[in-house]
């Protein structure tokens, strides 16, 4: 399969640092923040990221499939995580150094806690509010979050993104989309 030609579409209100590795057909939505040293690889199909997401340093987002990898709004990808999910809804958190295989899809308000490795043998979609965390036995346990406090958390994430949109451009060169 031929690699996609590079095509970056970056919303004017997004903050994408210069030192970000982009490959393939990538669309980044309004208010989304991509830290330096993050990597977005659209190997087989395009990647489309929604609004107000945060992609931290060292995070790697890969689309291995031909279909479009859609990432919704208000998602947080923490330092050094690796995500290959074919689709991701809204308000999910992927923790530091967590790794998610391309057989898993995230719906909404899912949390993959720090360091978890999830490799389902067949395609699976996590229900909303699912939390995957490293349990006492070192394996990844799952539970369902009550959702209590989600409004305060959403508020916090918005403030987080807002702060980054203010501060990152002061210390980093930014990328602009083609034609912008």
């Amino acid at each position: 399969m031929p690699p996609l030609r590079d095509k970056f579409t970056i919303h004017s209100k997004a903050v994408v640092c210069q030192d970000v590795e982009l490959k393939g057909d990538i669309t980044i939505g309004s208010g989304t923040v991509i830290h330096p040293k993050a990597t977005l690889f659209a190997i087989a199909g395009p990647i489309v990221i929604g609004a107000n997401c945060i992609v931290e340093e060292g995070a790697v987002i890969v689309n291995r499939r031909r279909e479009v990898m859609r990432i919704g709004d208000d998602n947080l990808f923490e330092i050094g995580c690796r995500v290959e999910c074919p689709s991701i809804g809204n308000s999910n958190t992927v923790g530091t150094r967590a790794r998610v295989h391309h057989t898993l899809r995230l719906s909404h308000y899912c949390t993959i806690s720090a360091g978890c490795l999830i490799v389902p043998s067949s395609d699976e979609t996590l229900d909303p509010y699912t939390v995957v965390y490293a349990g006492e036995n070192g394996l990844c346990d799952r539970r369902i979050w009550s959702g209590k406090g989600k409004m305060q958390e959403a508020d916090l994430r918005r403030k987080h993104a807002e702060y980054l949109r203010d501060m990152l451009p002061k210390f980093n060169r930014l990328r602009r989309g083609e034609g912008a």
Partner: peptide
């Protein structure tokens, strides 16, 4: 209420 930042258990 009491809340766990890691696994999101809460006392409610």
């Amino acid at each position: 209420f009491l809340y766990c930042n890691f696994c999101r258990w809460d006392s409610t």
